[in-house]
Amino acid sequence: MSTLTATWDWLADPAHWSGDNGVWHRLLQHLLLTVVCLVLSCLIALPVALVLGHLGRGGALAVNISNVGRAVPTFAVLVLLLLTPVGNWGEGPTVVALVLFAVPPLLTNAYVGMREVDRGVVQAARGMGMTGRQLMFHVELPLSLPLLMNGVRIAAVQLVATATIAALAGGGGLGRIITAGFNLASTPQVVAGALLVAVFALLVEGGFEIAERLGPAWARGGR
């Protein structure tokens, strides 16, 4: 119980919230890192998945890539990048590693979503004389949106989690509060940092859940 009260004391101390190592600054870094990486990985993964899904090609690659992604330890990739020339670009290694880890779930979910669009609907659209482009943007994309958004949500939560590990390799973000706590042998600080990260990850998950509920009925996943 003493750890809990000590953690509360740590969190209640305004000195821990301000400054370059303070909670607000770390939270902002974490948020910025997550958003930048999510946007970058969407820009890379979604066009590829949509085109592959529309053409129905490269399915094995699109589906298996997320299994491969799971087997590669994030932490190891971060450290590997850190030791290459990329390591000299400041936040470069963190951004590259995070994008590498967000791309697989995005790609797999968007591709599966495109392929699971009812073939009857696709054929009807073709029969009405839609071009490939119209078919992709007006039929397949809207119908695959629930699975695609599910991929974005998985990627976002994974990014929040992985951005924490970035601290182990000297990156910014909330993970730094935890690693600093370990270095100071301060259990309250470690637990406080962990609580902040966990709450942040749950808030992101909850945010997507709410967005999904508020979205139009046809865009809701049937999960």
């Binding site: 939560v157 989690a161 992985t162 935890i178 706590g181 470690v190 637990v191 966990a198 990850a201 749950l202």
Partner: peptide, 11 residues
């Protein structure tokens, strides 16, 4: 599952 691994070990 949502709790990041580093945070989980720390908690």
């Amino acid at each position: 599952y949502t709790i990041p691994s580093l945070a989980m070990f720390s908690l």
